[in-house]
Every structure is written in C-alpha cells, then in structure tokens.
Design a protein around this nucleic acid. Structure first.
Lengths: 153, 153
DNA sequence: CCTTGAGTTGAAGTCAACTTCAGGTTGCAC
DNA sequence: GTGCAACCTGAAGTTGACTTCAACTCAAGG
C-alpha cells in the first residue's frame, strides 16, 4: 500500500523535523530515493534508522559517531533485528560509563554537601585523580576538558 | 602572601583556560579586581566559584543557570561552606533525574537488544508514553524535543 | 633601558546540530 | 486545468561555550 514515505510522513511518524531529516541525509545518516520530480521517498526501513539515531543521541552520541555506527550495517540486505541489536549493544557500554560517572558525581556532591567544601585541597569532586600537583599550595583541577556542548538534558 | 591570583595562576590552578575565565567574567559568573595597569587579580574565593561552575557543568547545567544560582550567594560576605552546600544541594535533584533517565534508557535498550526491535509499533524506547496516535498505522515518536518548538504537525 | 613573558581588548572564528528563509517546483484533489 | 499544500535547494542564521587573532600594554629580571 504505502511502500515509501514522503518526508512529511517520515517527519510525522518519527517526530523529527523535516529540516533535520534533510540534514541527516546530507550527513549520510539516512537515505532516500527520488521521484521523477525530485522529491524524497523513504523506504520504511528508514524509520528504524531514524529511531536508532534519536535513541543514540539520548545516550549522548554525536551524529558523526552514529554515522560511523550505521555504516557498519549491511548495505546489501535490509538490516535484520540482530543487526540492530548488535548495534545497540555497542552503546550499552557508553551508557553504563555515563551512568557510572554521574553516580560518582552524585556521591561526591553528597560528600561535598556534607562538608560544604568544594575545596581545592581535599574535595574528591575537584580532585578526581588525587593530583595535588607540583608548584605551590593548592591542587590542580584535572577533570577532563569537555568537548562540545553537554549531552541532551 | 598571595592574597590574589593572576589570571594565569587561576587558570593553572583551576585547569580552566584563560579565555574561558574571561568569558565567564563577561557572563558575570566570576569577578576580578583590577591592578593599576588594568590586569585582573582574583580573590582566592573565586577558585571555589570556578570549581562550582565546572562541577555544575558536569551535572549538565548551562552557564546561564549557573549564573542564576551563583547570584543567590550572599554578596555582602564571603560565602560560607553552608552557602556552597545549599547551592550544591539544588543540583542534586537534577542529577538524580538525569541518572534515572539514563537508567531507563539503558533498561529499554536492553529490552530492545533482547528483541532486536527498535520497533515503532512496540518499542518502549521509541514509545515512552505508549502514544500510538491517531492516523494510520504506526506510532509517533513522543520523546521530548531537545529544545525549540515541536515538529510542525 | 631593554627584552620577554604575561596580560589586555574587541572582533571574528569554530563546532554541532539544527532552523529559517527566499524563491522556485511538484503532486494531488477538485 | 487550476489551485494550493507539500516539496525542493543553497545560503545564511542560531545557540552555547568557547578559542583564536591582531594589535597592543604591563611587569619584572638582567
């Protein structure tokens, strides 16, 4: 019946703005056939791709990385449930890591709330590696520098 | 001895780039006195402010919100440990929320890995509110948009 | 006094992830 | 066949959190 979707339909179904879908296509994350009149027609499997993209973003993964991941899907045949499962599994570790980090941050924050310190000298939050470095009194902040904006709240 | 810090010293101690410190100052997050020759001299309490800023960012809070929070500190006297503790406590809830969200995402992802679905029809990840909306087959994605208006219906 | 490293400024650039816009084309219902 | 919503494009704009740059001044050691 409806073999393919227009961009409006894909947008409605996925909840992703048309402009975003076009953007994803430019980045090579999704793909569309064209009608004679140059309009996009999406295979229904693209819905799953869009799903994967949005879910991955929630995990805090950049579009660039998502593209790389999607590139590992078989292009010859339609990806199977197993393919998708394997792909999702790779995010699992990331997610665990992020959860652990936030958990540590919370515990540390609790400790700091207890002592009201936020102290450069002692606070574990501020001093994750316990790096009370070399010159003069006072420690250095050794938190990793962030790259890019924080993940979607 | 060292009553105040130069920007270079604050940067080294906090691990925050000088350009970032100047940027924070423009946004009103930190403050510096000036020498006769117009150079910044930071009170040592600014170290704690910078600490709070970086920790808050890790929790996923924007500089704008951090500024608002910092504005609630007493300006007449130097903030006490209790002041800092109270401030940190306000982030606690945020942090819990984010952790819970990621936990749910992980569980859902596990479920999806199990079934390999990422299905628009059934997947809880994709269908958090179970909103299998009105027209035609297939569900809508009802994940909250990251910001800005919802998709044009 | 001179050099040199540290500081100053405003303006512009960057990056990700999009959105908005202007101006033009398609496709479907009547 | 006509009208109009839906679609197309490239370019430019947006936001947050910075960095980089050019051109300049300040501070301290020799």
């Amino acid at each position: 019946m409806h073999e393919s979707l227009t961009i409006g339909q894909l947008s409605a179904r996925s909840g992703v703005a048309q402009s975003a879908l076009r953007y994803y296509e430019r980045l090579g994350l999704i793909h569309a056939e064209r009608t004679g009149g140059n309009q996009r027609r999406y295979a229904r499997t693209e819905l799953r791709r869009v799903a994967f993209i949005r879910i991955s973003q929630q995990v805090g993964i950049s579009l660039e990385e998502i593209r790389t991941a999607l590139d590992s899907l078989p292009s010859s045949r339609a990806p199977s449930p197993d393919d998708w499962a394997a792909l999702s599994r790779t995010w699992r570790e990331r997610l665990d890591e992020r959860i652990k980090l936030l958990g540590k941050l919370r515990d540390d924050l609790d400790g700091c709330i207890g002592c009201g310190c936020l102290s450069l000298q002692r606070c574990t939050l501020y001093n994750p590696g316990d790096t009370l470095a070399g010159e003069g009194p006072g420690a250095r902040l050794v938190l990793p520098r962030r790259d890019g904006p924080p993940p979607p709240a």
